[in-house]
């Protein structure tokens, strides 16, 4: 078992400036633990994030394995439990709060109100719009990152990070909808998740959180 100190040294090992202690001070909320949320959580934990608040109401299914962090052994588990198991296997120093619940306009603030940054990682377009509208109006100042448009197998470089106003970042190609029928592929979903996690790390290390 590696210690907190060993993990922190490894996170910082090739960086001029310390990364780990800055990351340790931050709590990130992630709404949805599918292809975006599970992969974003793993990326943040690998970079030494101090605390995560994770919410999802689904269990792991076979149809998730094509793009989500889970393995077939996790099928049938609550995603909150499965992701906790995986994340705790990566880092000994991330406090993980999980909520096995459907996130709604009514409970979003009580779930994520104590987070330093909030990431929208739902699958459904209406859930995305509801969550962004709710969080941005009811929680002040905290940066918000959202993902929209990563379905199919189009060009990787169509997926971009866009800053909208002071608080909101939207990552994705903005147009490819899973309803178009071209499916979801791991690489493209992970690119979008990577954009979102990268923006989170950028803001944390630049002291913008």
């Amino acid at each position: 078992m590696i210690t907190r100190e060993q993990f922190g040294e490894a996170v910082d090992s090739r960086s001029r400036e310390p990364i780990f202690e800055k990351m340790q001070k931050v709590r990130v909320g992630i709404a949805g633990l599918g292809g975006l949320g599970s992969n974003i959580a793993a990326a943040l934990v690998r970079s030494g994030i101090g605390a995560l608040t994770l919410a999802d109401h689904d269990t792991v299914e076979l149809s998730n394995i094509n793009r989500q962090l889970y393995t077939p052994a996790d099928i049938g588990m609550k995603k909150t439990d499965a992701v906790r198991k995986i994340l705790c296997g990566i880092s000994p120093c991330c406090e993980i709060d999980t909520h096995f619940i459907r996130v709604t306009a009514e409970n979003a603030v009580s779930l994520f109100g104590n987070c330093d940054m909030i990431i929208e990682a739902f699958d459904g377009a209406e859930d995305k719009a509801m969550f962004i509208s709710t969080i941005m109006s009811e929680i002040n100042d905290v940066p918000v990152i959202s993902g929209s448009g990563m379905a199919g197998f189009g060009k990787a470089n169509d997926i971009v990070t866009r800053q909208i106003g002071k608080r909101l970042t939207v990552c994705g190609d903005g147009v490819t909808d899973v309803a178009d029928g071209d499916g979801l592929t791991a690489a493209r979903v992970m690119i979008c998740a990577g954009h979102m996690a990268s923006r989170a790390v950028e803001m944390i290390l630049k002291g913008e959180v």
């Binding site: 599918g34 699958d123 459904g124 377009a125 993902g147 448009g149 909208i164 994705g172 903005g174 899973v178």
Partner: peptide, 10 residues
């Protein structure tokens, strides 16, 4: 105004 349209998938 910024109108942010969302599409499904995640």
């Amino acid at each position: 105004a910024d109108i942010i349209g969302f599409v499904g998938g995640g």
